[in-house]
């Protein structure tokens, strides 16, 4: 039992790592293609059929590129920072149940690395630690753009952490558990049981905060080219830069899974669609949404971002929690 569990966990870890790294790469391809189509362009076309091998080419490029560390950088921190981003992104996935249980050769596999009873808290907490990646990278780079990027990281991540936490508080109150499996199971009864209907405001707030947490347009202030060159990543190149990227895309998947699990019925079967496929569809829809939003909307100013967080979203979230509490108390 012990060994099997260890082996199983290691296998799962490897699968998650490999799969999501690959998916992150593939997501870049998808992002480029979708963005291009939305902008009446073709996107990558030259490497492989329809540019499909562009990901590979980019990967090779990133791996073979010189690992450049600026003279004025704080070396160890500069080198470790991207690892923090990538690591936290993947660690967060440990508590996410991705699919329904299934059996291979009589062996039941639970597609979650670690089913802990505080899964949601763990995920949010680890994602919160992810803030150290960009923060340390920016501060260690010895570059003013990077420093600005780092400062923005701190305020943006910290602020939206509040919104994320407050917004999921209401569903947590309803479900009464922090385990994501419990969330899933709570919504097992079909579309009508989805939490989104009970907590639409929490859903929207969580989604907005999710954009901010993953540093996506319209909240991509950390590395906004027009303002801070590449923000915290200005001095990075090669695979270290690639790690930031993988982290970002992994986070997108995490958020996608989280939203699907918390609000949209998780991996329960949907009509005729088996649960595994259903959750994949949902996740991919959110990935697409991220890209779609990037193609459609301009980004906001840092002050607008803060204004939005503290003066709009946070109060709404608090009110939402209070109302949920009152409703639960009286009905």
């Amino acid at each position: 039992m012990e060994t099997a569990f260890i082996i199983e966990t290691i296998v799962k870890i490897l699968v998650v790592l490999g799969l999501f790294s690959a998916l992150a790469g593939f997501a870049t391809y998808v992002e480029r293609k979708v963005l291009a189509f939305m902008q009446r362009r073709l996107g990558p076309m030259h490497v492989g059929p329809y540019g499909i091998l562009q990901v590979l080419a980019d990967g090779i490029k990133l791996f073979t590129k010189e690992d450049f560390i600026p003279q004025g950088a704080v070396r160890p921190i500069f080198m470790i920072a991207p690892v923090i981003t990538a690591a936290t992104a993947f660690i967060a996935m440990a508590a996410i149940p991705m699919f329904p249980e299934f059996t291979i050769g009589g062996y039941t596999v639970r597609p979650i690395i670690s089913d802990m009873n505080v899964g949601l808290l763990f995920v949010l907490g680890v994602m919160g630690i992810g803030l150290y990646g960009p923060l340390l990278a920016g501060m260690a780079s010895g570059n003013k753009w990077s420093l600005l990027g780092a400062a923005r990281t701190a305020i943006q991540f910290l602020s939206y952490e509040v919104v994320t936490g407050l917004s999921v508080l209401a569903p947590v109150m309803i479900v009464g558990s922090l385990s994501l499996i419990d969330f899933n199971n709570y919504q097992a009864g079909g579309v009508g049981n989805w939490l989104v209907w009970k907590q639409p405001i929490a859903f929207i707030l969580f989604l907005i905060a999710g954009f901010a947490e993953t540093n996506r347009t319209p909240f991509d202030l950390l590395e906004h080219e027009a303002e801070v060159i590449s923000g915290y990543a200005t001095e990075y190149s090669g695979m270290r830069w690639g790690l930031f990227f993988i982290g970002e895309y992994a986070n997108m998947f995490t958020i996608g899974f989280l939203v699907s699990l918390i609000f949209l019925g998780g991996f329960n079967d949907l009509w005729f669609i088996p649960g595994a496929i259903a959750i994949l569809l949902k996740v991919f829809f959110f990935i697409f949404l991220f890209i779609w939003a990037r193609a459609s909307w301009p980004h906001v100013r840092p002050d607008q971002l803060m204004w939005l967080c503290w003066k709009v979203l946070m109060p709404i979230a608090v009110v939402n929690v209070v109302i949920t509490g009152i409703v639960m108390m009286f009905f």
Partner: peptide
């Protein structure tokens, strides 16, 4: 407004009216 923005990009994608000169 925000949704209109999304609609425009989505429609453009679906129409697939590409202007790229390779």
């Amino acid at each position: 407004d925000l949704l209109i923005g999304l609609k425009i990009t989505l429609l453009e994608m679906l129409r697939f009216n590409i202007h790229t000169i390779q």
